[in-house]
Design a protein around this nucleic acid. Structure first.
Length: 627
DNA sequence: TTTAGGG
DNA sequence: CCCTAAA
């Protein structure tokens, strides 16, 4: 059985009584567990659910399509014969693409369908494995899952398809109301990189070379599928070791259902209610086949038991042979930093999921979750297909998280019907300039009506320190960030916090202009203002314009030297003079009229050839600045 | 994306 | 500072 993990995703597996639970994905705990027993079985189990009725398994899909399986999309790990093989980047599909582009998904489906129609039904394909909730009535077209049951005993059955989503997708009706957050944000992953590097998987890659998927393909597929391009299906197909079952089925032939159940229980430590003999036989055989190997694998893999209260549990991490370096994160790390559900009642599934989504800050829409009791399916046959949120959404969510952490929440999240909807900035927050007052929070004045729509907007007043900005350049150059919350996203944002220009900045700007000339704002910004992130090149330009005005360089025709009217930061005359000189050499306003107004004599006397004179003039400027 | 210029 | 057109 193959489960997918997206490129860079990591799955933490825990083995309990021969069943492998996927308890973490990308280091984040799963709210719903993916249970993999030692065979080709996949189960979905509610977390912390003691109710056996709420235990979902593929058995149900196999035998009872109306079983209340909640939807599950997984692309985690590649597992064959009980060995855990991380899929290499080449033969997995980008989950993001899958989720983002339905067309791609359709392509995959087309591929699979094509193969299916060409007689490759014997392959096990778990691409975008989707389990269906509320898949009711007699419509048992769960893809090849049924086919599996029917052909389990066929001598030629070596592979089987599991494509439970094809029909629905083709009908444009794919329902995935509940997504396991299999793709975890990278910025969460990043937090644990340093620690994770300590983990050593070197022995794994060497110990289990046979687990590499390339071999998986060569073992079985190329034999029977040599005539097709394996790249078409390499992401999804593995050999299914049912063939060997056929060889040994004889000794199980005579067993009754009950006996098979006993054997099943003895092997997997749990009961099954599946009545299908073929299914039971194959599973038992498969379990026998792979038990030894699994034990070997689990013992040789890195064992990591964060919760060591259960002796038999082993946390197994994927070998990182084909994984990006340093992406494995100890489970405890993440679980510590991002609690799954904190402070939320366990039985409140919805709230828990919302919290889950919030914690993951991941693009996760929850439309319908597990119902706590067990009644579920009929009520909710959601009609919406879950799509990967747009990049915009992700960014906003990320920003939201960031701002949440910094106490400056400006976006609102409103939840309706379980769908998390990010409210872009500016939708609810009135945009506008603060009134003439110095109230920096002026732009936070929000209409009451709109404020009611803010479900969780808390705009923490921040200490305004404009007046505290001293002239010491070092201080004001280093201190930034806090007030530089520039938000230029369309749709409006709050006005950038006014940052007073200090004298040092002005001098720096003047220097920059003298060095690089007027108009090279980007260059000046990069070379002189690289430290101050809050000053953009546009800011420099604006400031220069203001300086020109202030220095009276452009206002010759008016009041000549109107010294600083009411500048909060008085600019020394020397600097003003320097600005004037520069304005002569680098006339900023290209306007002819102004140019005429500012009088040419000075320009002619100091400079003759425009740009050439920059350096020449620079010295004069420098001298001026020192005075 | 950067610059110029109006607001 | 913001916004936009233009390059």
């Amino acid at each position: 059985m193959i489960l997918f993990y997206s490129r860079g995703s990591h799955v933490g597996l825990q083995r309990v009584k021969g069943i492998f639970y996927v308890n973490t994905i990308n280091g984040l705990p799963c709210s719903s567990e993916l249970c993999l027993d030692s065979m080709n079985m996949l189960e979905v189990q509610r977390e912390n659910c003691k109710n056996p009725a709420a235990r979902y398994s593929v058995e149900n899909i196999w035998t009872n399509p109306s079983a209340s399986l909640n939807h599950l999309t997984n692309k985690f790990a590649r597992i064959q014969g009980g060995s855990f093989v991380p899929a290499s980047g080449d033969d997995i599909m980008e989950v993001e693409q899958l989720l983002a582009e339905p067309q791609i998904q359709k392509d995959l489906i087309d591929d699979i369908s094509k193969m299916s129609s060409e007689g490759f039904e014997n392959c096990l394909v778990v691409g975008e494995f989707a389990c269906y909730a509320g898949y009711s009535d007699q419509k048992t077209d769960l893809g090849i899952l049924d086919l599996d049951t029917e052909q389990a005993g066929n001598a030629g059955s070596k592979y089987e398809f599991v494509d439970s989503i094809l029909h629905e997708v083709d009908g444009g009706n794919l329902n995935m109301p509940y997504n396991i957050p299999c793709v975890c944000p990278n910025y969460i992953l990043d937090t644990g990189l340093a620690e994770s590097s300590q983990m050593d998987f070197s022995s794994d890659s060497g110990t289990h070379p046979r687990n590499l998927n390339s071999e998986c393909k060569t073992e079985g597929l190329e034999r029977n599928m040599s005539n097709i391009d394996t790249s078409d299906c390499s992401h999804a197909i593995i050999p299914f070791p049912a063939a060997k079952c056929d060889q040994d089925t004889t000794f199980l032939e005579n067993m009754s259902i009950d006996e098979l159940h006993d054997a099943f229980r003895g092997m997997f430590g749990r009961d099954t209610h599946v009545k299908d003999k073929h299914w039971l036989k194959r599973r038992i055989l498969f379990g026998l086949e792979n038990l030894a190997e699994i034990d070997h694998v689990s013992s040789s893999l890195l064992e990591f038991d964060p919760c060591s209260n259960e002796q038999q549990d082993e946390l197994i991490w994927m070998p990182r042979s084909s994984l990006p370096e340093g992406l494995c994160i100890p489970f405890t790390k993440i679980s510590d930093s991002s609690p799954l559900v904190d402070g939320i009642p366990e039985n409140d599934e919805y709230a828990g999921q919302v919290a889950h989504a919030k914690h993951l800050t991941e693009v996760m829409k929850i439309e319908s979750g597990f119902s706590s009791t067990g009644e579920k399916e009929s009520a909710q046959i959601p009609a919406k297909r879950l799509r990967k949120p747009t990049r915009r959404y992700i960014e906003e969510t990320y920003e939201l998280k960031t701002r949440c952490c910094s106490g400056k929440l400006k976006a609102a999240i409103s939840s309706s019907r379980g769908v998390l909807i990010p409210v872009p900035d500016g939708v609810h927050v009135r945009r506008g300039r603060p009134r003439k007052s110095n109230n920096v929070m002026g732009d936070i004045n929000i209409g009451n009506k709109q404020q009611t729509q803010l479900s969780m907007a808390s705009i923490a007043p921040r200490a305004v320190s404009t007046s505290q900005l001293s002239d010491s350049e070092s201080q004001n150059d280093v201190s930034d960030d806090c007030g530089s919350n520039t938000r230029r996203d369309k749709g409006g944002a709050r006005r950038k916090h006014h940052r007073q220009w200090t004298l040092s900045e002005v001098i720096k700007l003047v220097d920059g202009v003298s060095q690089y000339g007027v108009g090279r704002w980007t260059e000046i910004k990069r070379l002189l203002f690289s430290a101050s992130t809050y000053r953009t090149s546009v800011d420099l330009k604006d400031k220069w314009r203001n300086l020109l005005r202030a220095s009276g360089a452009q206002l010759h025709y008016r009041k000549k030297v109107e010294p600083q009217k009411s500048m909060s930061v008085p600019i020394p005359h020397s600097v003003l003079r320097r600005i004037r000189e520069l304005s002569v050499i680098h006339p900023y306003p290209r306007d002819r009229t102004l140019r005429r107004a500012e009088g040419g004599p000075a320009a002619i006397s100091t400079s003759s050839t425009g740009s050439r004179s920059i350096k020449h003039n620079e010295h004069g400027v420098q001298r001026l600045s020192h005075t």
